[in-house]
Design a protein around this nucleic acid. Structure first.
Length: 345
DNA sequence: AATAATGGCAACCGCGAAAGC
DNA sequence: TGCTTTCGCGGTTGCCATTAT
């Protein structure tokens, strides 16, 4: 009847680990490899729960574990967290030699505070001011938000267990994306597709694909066409150091190669002041590209002055754009029926 | 110098899904 | 098919070192 119990003896679940235990575990693993930890616990005679032994091995004893996080890794963690939330195991798999526990601890002890200090909510990756604004405006577009949650639930399985299916889905999405771009008559920059997909790229760059899905999701959110035109360059290209960027405020929009584009850590183009966001839909696609710096394929974001200048000279015809986006959205849900499902059923 | 507060890291624990019988 | 256990994951807690008062 069922498997034998792993460990029910709580007495042995001590919090401390001795060097002897570690050495014993390492010896056992080197001899027998990694397998049934409950069995290992018994055979090794350590007297610790197999589950704890495994945890100890994975988190501390494994030979390929690294010590300190680099600024690039920190940035990647922030970016991935902004996209998929606290899926530490998935995030950790993108960082060689890192454990989910390490990533989680880094986030809780360092990165969360860092973002908060920058005025960015580490949960939503929006500025606190934006959250306060939203708080007074509850009831916006729950449909789009629900879809994003649904996406997150599906991501793990899609990325971790069915790579071939993922490639197929990505190809489908790429076709859809191309069609969508054509539909809304988007002047396609040479790098725009490469940013999100590469047909020959293997293995799949997880961050890029997350960005792509985020791209679709944002496209279905009616509030920010800006996000559609932002280039999704590699995080490594984006900046060199989060640590050295304390001087780059949220309002900084003119970036050099080594500066952090803090809007990358936000969702839904949240840095835009509400008065700009409200008028944003009135931009034409071409002007949107100009605003986002996408026309030249660079990662630079144009200055607020530029945006203001454009906004001040624009008309108010937004219906064609909205219709285009709705059309794209409908087609997207035809291609990806799962997106329309309620995440809790 | 003593004590309290804080921060960082490692381990613990509960839950849900998967797997074995 | 149902029960039981394992496994993976993520949130929480405990411990220790450092800093502040």
């Amino acid at each position: 009847m069922g498997r034998p119990p792993c460990c029910s003896d709580k007495v042995n679940n001590r919090r401390c680990n001795s060097n002897d235990e570690d050495a014993n575990t390492s010896t056992f693993v080197s001899k027998h490899g990694i397998g049934n930890w409950a069995t290992m616990s018994k055979k090794s005679g350590i007297g610790r729960c197999g589950r704890n032994q495994k945890q100890r091995w994975n988190n501390r004893l494994k030979p390929d574990l690294k010590q300190d996080f680099t600024p690039q890794e920190e940035e990647l963690i922030i970016k991935l967290h902004a996209t998929i939330g606290s899926r530490w195991s998935i995030i950790a798999q993108q960082l060689a030699g890192r454990t989910d526990n390490d990533v989680k601890n880094l986030w809780n002890t360092k990165l969360k505070k860092k973002l908060s200090a920058m005025g960015i909510d580490p949960v939503t990756h929006k500025p606190f001011s934006q959250i306060l604004t939203d708080y007074g405006n509850i009831g916006g577009f729950p449909k789009a938000r629900t879809r994003f949650v649904s996406l997150n639930r599906e991501l793990k399985g899609a990325f971790m267990s069915r790579p071939e299916q993922l490639q197929q889905s990505l190809q489908k999405f790429q076709n859809f994306n191309s069609h969508c771009v054509t539909t809304i008559k988007l002047p396609k920059s040479e790098t725009s597709e490469e940013c999100f997909f590469s047909n020959n790229q293997a293995p799949v760059d997880l961050l890029s694909e997350f960005e792509a899905i985020k791209f679709v999701t944002e496209s279905s959110n009616y509030n920010s066409p800006k996000a559609i035109f932002l280039q999704s360059n590699s995080i490594i290209d984006c900046s060199s150091s989060l640590l050295s960027s304390s001087s780059s405020s949220a309002g900084s929009h003119s970036l050099t190669e080594n500066q952090v584009n803090w809007s990358d850590y936000l969702l839904d183009g949240a840095f835009l002041p509400s008065n700009i966001k409200d008028q944003e839909d009135t931009l034409t696609i071409e002007e949107g590209l100009v605003c986002s710096g996408a026309q030249d394929g660079s990662n630079n974001v144009s200055s607020m002055e530029d945006s203001d200048a454009l906004l001040s000279t624009k008309g108010t015809s937004s219906s064609s754009f909205v219709e285009s986006m709705l059309e794209c959205e409908n087609e997207m849900f035809l291609n990806f029926p799962g997106l329309s499902e309620d995440p809790f059923y």
